[in-house]
Design a protein around this nucleic acid. Structure first.
Lengths: 106, 106
DNA sequence: TAGTTATGAAACCATTCGGTTGCAAATATA
DNA sequence: TATATTTGCAACCGAATGGTTTCATAACTA
């Protein structure tokens, strides 16, 4: 059973849950009210999100508030960073080429 | 059959393929040599990546060069942008609170 | 032209996924 | 204490996923 952030955000319901609790920590019951599924299905999603540490739990009596773990979210950004670097360096290459052309003209 | 960027990048092999062709456009055969699977499996991954427009094809005789579609990649970044905004506004809220405390002290 | 190479598509298979229902445990409340 | 509420977990089910093997087609090449 693979459990990483990318697999976690692959499901649209989970992405919606993430967005919900990003705005405000919520209990499973409260979250489930926003969706057209059973509370248990939401509970399963929360388990997956917990397993890859995208969400944190805060117990308050019998209620459990789920909140987003920003650090883990930033891992997705870190993955994208690779590509930004690649594109940037490619842009610099293009820059060099343009500079060469410019110098040849002189 | 759902076909969106998030489902596409959920698979680790597909993420590796994306990184490979981000550096240089490649043919399916060349890509497959980097992995421990059959060419056909890679071909399937490329189909999925094509379907959600994460990659573009460039035919050259009987060879097909696959290259990354940067625009689609930026959609992932756009999704993350939401959260940056939420966190930022939350930070500003905190800022307001701190300002209020500061003013009360005066 | 005959044979090789590059590629995609179809059929099949075991595993995973996302959902459901039913149940048990812990906490709150009358 | 008896009842209601909040939650997680297990068992089950149909669909999707990722892989394989086999095959057809198009394009190079000897």
């Amino acid at each position: 059973m693979r459990r990483d952030v990318f697999q976690a955000i692959a499901d649209p319901t989970r992405r919606a849950i993430i967005l919900l609790i990003a705005l405000q920590a919520m209990t499973p019951n409260a979250i489930a009210q926003h969706f057209d599924t059973t509370r248990q299905a939401v509970s399963k999603h929360l388990r997956i999100l917990t397993e890859c540490q995208l969400v944190k739990q805060k117990q308050s009596g019998r209620e459990i508030y789920y909140e987003l773990n920003e650090t883990r979210m930033k891992e997705i950004d870190k993955w994208l960073e690779q590509f930004r670097k690649i594109w940037e360096s490619r842009f610099n290459e293009l820059d060099k080429v343009l500079l060469t052309i410019k110098n040849k003209k002189k």
